[in-house]
Amino acid sequence: MHEMGIAMQIVEIAAASIPKNVENIQVERVNIKVGKLSAVVPESLKFCFEIVVKDTPLSGARLVIEEVPVVARCNECSAEWTITGPVFTCIKCNSGSIQILSGRELDIVSIEIADP
């Protein structure tokens, strides 16, 4: 629901990462990671990015999203597994004391610029 704001943040951070000393840079890709547990819908984010990116130094860039699975570790028995459904108890010992190792990401990884 807030994908437009997220897209604007991505463009702002990515634009600030463009090297200052090179002219006519074309940013081709912005690579980001989105955890499956984050409140962001990848398709909506791509749609918003396409709108927001116009008339910015990133004009024409593509947003490439790597979705990160929700991985948990049990604090009791140290089991590690990927959570695919809405159950957050240990698959081995049923303990509720778990850590979420990944799945909350909303990170910009890199930008890719065209070779001059």
Binding site: I13, I108, S110
Partner: peptide, 13 residues
């Protein structure tokens, strides 16, 4: 050329 950024999108927040 790939330029590493590695920042949280919600860094400012």
């Amino acid at each position: 050329m790939e330029i590493k950024v590695v920042r949280k999108v919600l860094d400012v927040n």
